[in-house]
Design a protein around this nucleic acid. Structure first.
Lengths: 218, 218
DNA sequence: ACCTGAACACCGTTCAAGT
DNA sequence: ACCTGAACACCGTTCAAGT
C-alpha cells in the first residue's frame, strides 16, 4: 500500500458520494452544489472533478448508492418478490425524495439496469412467454419510475414542514370544487385522494400489471 | 376595445408561450432561457415576468398548450378511448420531447389534471367498482407519465443527429455483453430492445393494466 | 399598465498554479 | 497524482427607471 492510500481524509468518490447524500437528505436537492459539497469536504470545488466527471455522474452515483441495496428481495414466490422489489424502491424514494427525481429523468444508469434486472429475473421465474418478456418488464419498470417521478414532484410541491394529510385534504377540496361537467371523474375520486395510502395505492398498481401479465396468452 | 388591445405586437402570455414552444422544439430544452426568449420577442428579459410568474409556470403553460388538445379522443368503446388518449400523449411526447420531462417532474398542473380526467371518465364508462376507481386511474396515469419521463431521458441521451436504431443497437450490444450471472434477464431481452417498436411497447403496457382492471373483483 | 435592461445572486465547470 | 481557488460563462429573477 503506497503513501497515497494512507493519506488521511483523502478525497475519494466514495466520500464525495456520502457527503452528497447527506446534503440531499438534510437540505434537499437544491442545496447540493459543488461549492456546498466542497465546503463540507473542506476542499476546493474543483477537487471534486478529479473524482467525478460532472453533476450528472454525481447524482447517478448517489442514486445507485441508495437504490441498489434496496432491491435485494427475499421472497420465494415471484409475485411476492416483485412486490418486495417495488416496495423497496418505493420506500427508498420515500426516505430520499431526490431519488425519484433523478431516476425518472436520468438516462441509462446502473440503477435502472439493476431495477430492470431484478424485476425481469422474476418474470423469467413466472415463465412469461419469451415474446412478452421485454414489454412486461418495461411496463413494470415504467410504472414504478412513473410513481417515482410523481412522488418526487409532490415532495417538491409540499412546502417544507407542511403536514402531508393537510396538504392532500386541501388539494382534495380543490378537486371537489371543480366544474361538475368538465371534471366528473376528478370530483368523484377527490375524497379517495385525501384518504388514500400511497404505499397501498402503489402496490395496487403493481398488482394490476401482474394480473395483466398472468393473463397473457401463452 | 381600448388602446391596449390594439397595440401591435403587444406581449401576451399567448405569444410568449408560442415563442417558447418554438425554441423548445427547434433548439431543445436547454436553449429556452429568458434571455433567448426575450431576444426572440424583441423585448427585455424582465418584460416576460409581467405575463408569466416564473420559469415553472412558463413550462407548465407550454406543456398544457400541446398536451390538452392531444387528449381529446373519438372512440366509442372505453378501452379504445383509453388507448387513444394514451397514444395521444405518447405522440405528443414524441414530437415534443421536452413535454415528457416537464410532465414527469412538475407538480399539479392543468395538464396532469386533464389527463387524469380523460382517463378516469373512461373508467367510469367501464363501470370500474367505486373503491378501485382512484387506484385504477392513478395506475394508468403513473404508467403513462413513467414512459413520458423515460422517453424524455432517452431523447436527452441521444446525441443530436444520431440515428435512433443505431443507438438502440449499440445499447443492446452493451446489454448482451453484460455478465451472464449478474444480468441474465437484461442479456436475454437485449435483442428485443434493439428491435422493439416504442409505440407498440407502450400500448402493450396500457393493455396489461386494462386487463388487470377488467379482472378486478366486483 | 406595461416594458427596458442593468444588476444581483447565484450556478456548473475549467484551469493555471501549487504540493 | 491530486488539490486549490479564482475565473469564466452562464443562469433565473428583481427592480429602478422609463413610456
Amino acid at each position: 500500500m503506497g503513501l497515497t492510500a494512507m493519506r488521511k481524509n483523502a478525497l475519494s468518490k466514495q466520500r464525495i458520494v456520502e457527503a452528497a447524500i447527506e446534503i440531499l437528505d438534510n437540505e434537499g436537492e437544491s442545496a447540493l452544489t459543488f461549492r456546498a459539497l466542497a465546503t463540507r469536504l473542506a476542499t476546493g470545488a474543483g477537487a471534486i472533478y478529479w473524482h467525478v466527471a460532472d453533476k450528472n455522474e454525481l447524482l447517478s452515483a448517489t442514486t445507485e448508492h441508495v437504490v441498489v441495496p434496496a432491491i435485494t428481495h427475499s421472497a420465494s414466490e415471484p409475485g411476492d418478490a416483485i412486490r418486495a422489489i417495488a416496495l423497496g424502491i418505493f420506500d427508498t424514494m420515500d426516505a430520499h425524495p431526490w431519488v425519484g427525481a433523478h431516476l425518472s429523468r436520468a438516462p441509462s444508469q446502473t440503477a435502472i439496469l439493476a431495477i430492470i434486472e431484478r424485476l425481469g429475473a422474476q418474470l423469467l421465474e413466472l415463465e412469461v412467454p419469451e415474446k412478452h418478456l421485454f414489454s412486461a418488464g418495461s411496463a413494470l419498470g415504467n410504472y414504478i419510475l412513473g410513481v417515482a417521478g410523481q412522488n418526487a414532484a409532490n415532495a417538491r410541491l409540499l412546502p417544507a414542514g407542511t403536514d402531508r394529510v393537510d396538504f392532500l385534504t386541501a388539494v382534495a377540496n380543490e378537486w371537489s370544487q371543480l366544474d361538475a361537467d368538465q371534471y366528473p371523474f376528478v370530483r368523484r375520486v377527490a375524497r379517495q385522494l385525501a384518504e388514500h395510502d400511497d404505499r397501498e395505492q402503489f402496490l395496487a398498481g403493481v398488482d394490476l400489471i401482474l394480473d395483466g401479465i398472468a393473463n397473457l396468452p401463452r
